[in-house]
């Protein structure tokens, strides 16, 4: 019988690997809108197209696998979020990471490959992927702290405050979920209007 911890390890490796690839490819895609001065590091149009597709595929794979990684991690964990701030934070950072990566995928699909030809939107997309990757790395770092008592974040000159958290009641969380859904729907509806205006 294979335990949840084994599935968790496999899923986390897939998620981290694909999202790392996605982040690197996303950063390289800035060349579509901003020319870098070093000629040796300039990629061809064909390579940049491939990187954009790799970034999107990596992000989609990461977003699809992330709920599985969270679920198996929940099953495999020794403690519960009730008595462990690190574990509680692991949930929260997983949520942030999922939110950022889902938004990344949505925005890329929404505007298509032309997104990279606009300087502002491409920089925004890169910043989004960096924020998403920071959240993902934080989740992985908490995992390292829980299992081995150390993580690669320990060598950084700063430390994300993972030993502190903000607890909000389930009722307020549900209210926030509702507000979130309403704001997403209203934003998407207003977008249609703005595009009509632009056209």
């Amino acid at each position: 019988m294979v335990g949840a911890a084994t599935f968790h390890a496999a899923m986390v490796e897939i998620v981290i690997g694909s999202l790392t690839l996605s982040t690197i490819c996303t950063i390289c895609c800035i060349q579509n809108s901003i020319k870098i001065p070093l000629g040796k590091f300039q990629f061809s149009k064909k390579t940049l197209d491939a990187m954009d597709k790799a970034a999107l595929a990596g992000a989609i794979l990461g977003v699809l696998m992330m709920p599985g990684a969270i679920l198996t991690g929940d099953l495999a964990s020794m403690g519960t979020p009730e008595d462990n701030i690190l574990l509680y934070n692991k949930f929260l950072y997983s949520g942030l990471s999922l939110g950022f990566w889902a938004a990344y995928v949505f925005c890329r699909i929404r505007f298509g490959q032309e997104l990279w030809e606009n300087r502002v939107l491409s920089i925004f997309q890169i910043l989004m992927s960096l924020a998403a990757f920071t959240m993902t790395a934080s989740v992985a770092s908490i995992g390292g702290k829980l299992v081995r008592g150390e993580s690669l974040f320990d060598i950084l000159p700063f430390w994300i405050p993972l030993d502190q958290t903000i607890v909000i009641s389930p009722g307020i969380s549900m209210f926030l979920i509702l507000i979130g859904f309403v704001s997403i729907i209203s934003t998407l509806r207003s977008r249609k209007v703005s595009l009509l205006n632009i056209d």
């Binding site: 929260l92 942030l96 939110g99 979130g180 997403i184």
Partner: peptide, 11 residues
């Protein structure tokens, strides 16, 4: 709370 964070960030 994690789900609410995900949705709020997405929005």
């Amino acid at each position: 709370q994690a789900l609410s964070y995900a949705i709020i960030i997405f929005g």
